[in-house]
Design a protein around this nucleic acid. Structure first.
Length: 282
DNA sequence: TGATATGTTATCTT
DNA sequence: CAAGATAACATATC
């Protein structure tokens, strides 16, 4: 479920509650998501929480880290006797007593609070990974679209090399980090460019508009705490975001295009639901 | 029952 | 190798 803005939101929410605390034990409720040995992190202190692309990095003492990917349905939920905060895929687990049937890991902290990792579809993972392995891996990743390294020159040069539909190019995590389906659809509508248009055929003017639209759309998502598409949970305090209230086309089939009032349509592109305006997105 | 789901990667085919 | 389609991971919901 979560895209970059959702992951960023979880990261910044979690950080003040877990930094400085020690992991006293790790409960493994399902073996699949954990890569590494949970014994290696018992007794370590959480020193920072940061984000790279769509992963949450929990920095630990002893030069170790937990790298968390929520994929489609992951959640990170922090529970103490006075707080319950978190985020990720909106499900009833947000409001249930934890652990739930989807809880895969529970990190018990030394103030008796707990950080839960839930994941209904088991696509997500948590890796125990030393800093000297992680940082070279990160160095090989392309820039995230919110990084200063994501320049127009970089974007322009990538498009020249790609004949794939522009939507596929901007969502390709090997080319740029952080653009998922919601924000890809919205940025393309904002830029009035067809998702099917081959990347290399975009004009200079279109590239400039799209470059800015991607950055603006993702930043809007971050500002609003990400999107919570399940209407049942949009009001759950400490979890939900509100990007869905300003979403231009995602999940808006039949609604009026914000550019030209034409009804938004939905089709498949590369296996993903793709929302677009058939009139103004050329 | 079948289609769909905010992610990523592998594997086919052309 | 490029590009496009499809499948795979595994589960819940409409």
């Amino acid at each position: 479920m979560p895209e970059l803005p959702e992951v960023e939101t979880i990261t910044t929410r979690l950080k003040p509650f877990v930094v400085g605390k020690k992991i006293t034990s790790v409960d493994l409720l399902h073996p699949r998501p954990l890569q590494g040995n949970q014994q290696d992190i018992v007794g370590l202190e959480i020193t920072d929480v940061t984000r790279r692309a769509k992963t949450v990095r929990i920095h630990l003492s002893k030069q170790l880290n937990l790298l968390v990917h929520l994929k489609m349905t992951g959640q990170l939920i922090y529970v103490s006797d006075k707080q319950k905060i978190g985020g990720g895929h909106p499900t009833g687990d947000w409001i249930s007593e934890l652990p739930t049937k989807h809880t895969r890991l529970a990190f018990k902290l030394d103030d008796l609070s707990t950080l839960y990792f839930n994941d209904q579809r088991l696509f997500g993972w948590i890796k125990v990974i030393p800093t000297n392995v992680l940082e070279p891996m990160f160095a090989k990743l392309p820039p995230d679209v919110v990084d200063p390294e994501f320049t127009f020159e970089y974007f322009d040069q990538i498009l020249n090399r790609k004949g794939v539909p522009i939507k596929v190019a901007i969502m390709d995590s090997a080319l740029m980090g952080g653009v998922g389906n919601i924000y890809a659809c919205d940025a393309l509508n904002k830029a009035k460019i067809s998702p099917w248009k081959p990347a290399k055929t975009l004009t200079e003017a279109e590239r400039k508009v799209l470059y800015q639209a991607i950055i603006d759309t993702i930043n809007m998502g971050i500002r609003l705490g990400g999107a919570t598409t399940d209407g049942k949970y949009v009001d759950v305090s400490g979890f939900a975001g509100s990007y869905q209230t300003v979403s231009r086309v995602y999940d808006k089939a039949g609604a009026a295009c914000q550019n030209c009032r034409t009804p938004i349509e939905k089709e498949k592109l590369a296996g993903r639901g793709t929302y677009f305006c058939p009139s103004c997105q050329k």
